[in-house]
Amino acid sequence: MATSLAAPAANLALQLEGVRKAFDRTLVLKDIDLAVAPHEVVCLIGASGSGKSTLLRCVNLLEEIDQGRISFFGEEISATTIDVNRLRRQIGIVFQSFNLFPHMTVLQNLTLAPIRVLRKSRPEAEAEADALLSRFGLLEKRREYPDRLSGGQQQRAAIARALAMQPRLMLLDEVTSALDPELVAEVLNVIRSLARAGMTMIIATHEMGFARDIANRVCFLDGGVILEQGPPEQLFRQPHEERTKRFLQSLTEAGRL
């Protein structure tokens, strides 16, 4: 299957071709095609269970795909011979539930991978971590343990932890869904600053205002397929597909759009 495809495009940050993923017998991703250019911000929207999270986890190789091909800057990463650890250094992922390491301070959370994986010296890793923490307004929390932080602070720390590996692509998986409403803005602002700095990102989100604001392109996922995609203005104002309309309609009724 993969051999019949043309060589992956090197000018794309990420390219998914016919990606299929099933859990047991449930098909979660049905032949997904998606191309992401460098510095592009792509938002994935859609109901829970539409496949947004699975798509991100497949890109990070946390899930193995059943069919198709994923390429990262022209390199086929879905091949079984790929060194997943090497690849994951370049792709950061941030989870809905933060997943900070509770037994480590914020600083240790940020320096663990740079020291262990990139073999950086402790002073170097800590200096870089401090720079990230001060950028995200967390410098005074560097010696605190995660459960002393608010949800918003924890999520900002988790984003900083992923950035400490200097990834070329960031995957954000509903990073504000577990936050109290008043803490959402501080996390979204951090992501906005990343977008301004030119970070390539794929963002699964339920924050439509944010998606409209930050995305170069919005993809609507439904039942494991990208049903519709386009610039945010077009997709939110004049969706072509009936199901996209219904999804946006239901959000409007819930007061979330």
Partner: peptide, 20 residues
């Protein structure tokens, strides 16, 4: 999810076990 977080940062299985 702790293992997922560690592995997503590029840590190997052994490193994730040992550190996390």
């Amino acid at each position: 999810s702790q293992v997922a977080a560690a592995r997503s940062l590029g840590l190997s299985h052994g490193q994730a076990m040992r550190s996390v």
